[in-house]
Computed example of a mutant assay.
Amino acid sequence: MSRAYPLVLSVTSGKGGVGKTNVSVNLSARLAAMGRRVVLLDADLGLANVDVLLGLAPMYNLFHLFHEGVDIQSILLETEYGFRILPAASGVADMLSLSTGQKLELLEAMDSLENEVDFLVVDTGAGINDNVLYFNLAVQERLLVVTPEPTSLTDAYALIKVLKNNHGVDRFRVLVNMVPDEKTGRNVFATLYKACDHFLDGVSLDLAGTLPADPALRQAVVNQIPFSAAAPEAPASKAIDAVARRINDWQPSTQLDGNIKFFWKRILFQEQSVA
């Protein structure tokens, strides 16, 4: 069953190595299994690896959109897990920082997909570079992936701080990954919540879920298969399914917040029709 309006979600992090891309791939697979039309955009443009996690060898990627005029439909790649990916290039310096024109070109190209997508999952890079900030501004919801490592929390806080203070973003969802148990995950979330509540005025954090450290994840990565498909009964698979079900219930915002969004023309049209 398709949604009346697509929900655009970033999966992001302040620090690399927290399992962000693995979360993106498995969330996409579980949402597709619920009958949703899902596109996963690999927005880690210079260090892309969504295709690697899936064992795919794309003919085209976003480099070809920007530099060779290949259309978005030709770049889209079907997976055997029910969702499509928009792959990016790896090891291409030209992709590390998109120009203003390229940012607008991507948004224009994505507009052609608005009637065939229920969820656009945007797997960003890590940190606070220009591309990471841009993609987090262009989405409706931000899923921030953290782990119990102190550096993961400090870097996540830094990303929240930049987005809030410099761009007015005040709402984040948090997924705590690689935890020994749910209690630890909730404590990690509480630590981040308290820091934001104390130092950043008006930031809203919601816990989207926790994912346990699970041997099934490592083996699935080696085999280039989503862990939720390779080991559906594993604790991590059940946990990501629960997170996907919560996300499936999220309602997309149809309000512009001053930042240019994916499918912004449709949002603008709806605002004008309501007015």
Results as ranks from 00 to 15, higher is better:
residue 2 S to D: 05
residue 3 R to S: 05
residue 3 R to G: 00
residue 11 V to I: 09
residue 14 G to R: 02
residue 14 G to D: 02
residue 15 K to Y: 01
residue 18 V to S: 05
residue 22 N to P: 13
residue 24 S to R: 08
residue 25 V to E: 08
residue 25 V to D: 07
residue 26 N to H: 09
residue 28 S to T: 03
residue 28 S to I: 10
residue 29 A to D: 00
residue 37 R to I: 08
residue 46 G to M: 02
residue 46 G to Y: 01
residue 46 G to L: 03
residue 47 L to V: 03
residue 50 V to M: 01
residue 52 V to A: 12
residue 53 L to W: 01
residue 58 P to S: 04
residue 61 N to M: 00
residue 62 L to Q: 08
residue 66 F to K: 08
residue 66 F to Y: 07
residue 66 F to L: 07
residue 67 H to L: 06
residue 68 E to Y: 03
residue 68 E to M: 10
residue 68 E to N: 12
residue 72 I to F: 01
residue 74 S to L: 04
residue 79 T to S: 15
residue 79 T to R: 14
residue 87 P to S: 01
residue 90 S to H: 13
residue 91 G to R: 04
residue 94 D to L: 14
residue 97 S to N: 10
residue 98 L to P: 10
residue 99 S to Y: 09
residue 102 Q to H: 06
residue 105 E to V: 10
residue 106 L to F: 08
residue 107 L to C: 11
residue 115 N to S: 14
residue 116 E to C: 14
residue 117 V to C: 09
residue 126 A to G: 15
residue 126 A to E: 12
residue 127 G to W: 00
residue 129 N to E: 05
residue 131 N to S: 08
residue 137 L to Y: 06
residue 138 A to R: 02
residue 143 L to H: 04
residue 143 L to W: 06
residue 148 P to I: 05
residue 150 P to E: 01
residue 152 S to M: 07
residue 152 S to W: 00
residue 155 D to K: 07
residue 156 A to R: 08
residue 156 A to V: 01
residue 157 Y to M: 02
residue 159 L to P: 10
residue 166 N to Y: 07
residue 173 R to E: 15
residue 174 V to N: 12
residue 175 L to T: 05
residue 175 L to M: 07
residue 177 N to D: 03
residue 178 M to H: 09
residue 178 M to A: 15
residue 183 K to R: 15
residue 183 K to V: 11
residue 183 K to Q: 15
residue 184 T to Y: 13
residue 187 N to L: 14
residue 189 F to C: 04
residue 189 F to R: 12
residue 190 A to H: 09
residue 196 C to Q: 07
residue 197 D to Y: 08
residue 206 D to N: 14
residue 208 A to T: 04
residue 212 P to C: 01
residue 215 P to H: 12
residue 222 V to R: 11
residue 224 Q to P: 03
residue 229 A to R: 15
residue 230 A to W: 11
residue 230 A to M: 11
residue 230 A to L: 13
residue 231 A to I: 13
residue 237 S to L: 01
residue 238 K to A: 02
residue 241 D to P: 02
residue 244 A to F: 11
residue 245 R to N: 11
residue 246 R to D: 05
residue 250 W to V: 13
residue 252 P to R: 07
residue 254 T to L: 15
residue 258 G to L: 07
residue 261 K to Y: 10
residue 263 F to A: 09
residue 264 W to Y: 12
residue 265 K to G: 04
residue 267 I to M: 11
residue 268 L to P: 13
residue 270 Q to A: 02
residue 274 V to F: 05
residue 275 A to P: 13
